[in-house]
């Protein structure tokens, strides 16, 4: 069937073919192009997020490795320091050592009074009162020897009194040393160890 003759002859099959192609074009646009465009946008978005996420993972991994290295170093330092530091039960040993040092520097020790161990500022301390007699320079030597041997003690009080009636330079001495010890719960210590 001829639909129109001028300017060119158009048959009914031409109209049908054009209609079929138009339908096919519309179908292609809505069924293929639009979803493809959506997929492409999603893919681009996901790829960008994945890239940034992987970068973040790498950075976090590096940070974690640094912190782990810090932890390893700290653990090693703590083990070393904890081995050197006085333990809660080391007061008798310190008393004995302080007395030996005092006698080794020509001081005559009359009295040693250890006080009860107590907790101060998260660590344990024990005060030791000592009294004796000797030359002031020997007392300085004793303090020096004690400081060199044990840096975990501090001098809380001392008194050097020169005797009035003495020509030999002897002094009455009294001093209090505080020993600083690890707390009971440090590095797995238990209460029963003191």
């Amino acid at each position: 069937m001829i639909v129109c003759k001028k300017p060119c002859t158009v048959y009914d099959v031409d109209l049908a073919g054009l209609s079929a192609l138009t339908v096919l074009g519309l179908l292609t646009y809505f069924a293929v192009v639009v979803p493809m465009r959506m997929h492409w946008n999603s893919y681009r978005d996901l790829s960008a997020r994945q890239h940034s996420s992987e970068t973040a993972v790498r950075q976090t991994g590096n940070q974690l490795r640094r912190v782990e290295a810090d932890v390893t170093r700290l653990q090693a330092a703590i083990v070393t320091l904890a081995r050197q530091a006085p333990q809660p039960g080391s007061l008798p040993q310190f008393l004995s050592r302080a007395t030996v040092l005092a006698e080794g520097t020509q001081l005559e020790v009359f009295q040693v009074i250890p006080h009860a161990t107590r907790a101060v500022d998260e660590c344990l301390v024990a005060d030791i009162e000592m009294s004796g007699r000797g030359h002031s320079l020997d007392f300085i030597r004793f303090l020096d020897a004690l400081a060199r041997e044990n840096s975990y003690q501090s001098l809380r009080q001392f008194s050097i009194t020169r005797r009035e009636q003495s020509d030999d330079g002897l002094c009455d001495l009294s001093w209090t040393i505080r020993l600083h010890m690890l707390p009971l719960d440090f590095a797995g210590h238990t209460e029963g160890q003191l």
Partner: peptide, 18 residues
Amino acid sequence: LIDQLRLLSGLQREQPWA
């Protein structure tokens, strides 16, 4: 661990008196 280290370091005292 830093707190423990601070505690351990705090146990050591200066010895200025001699």
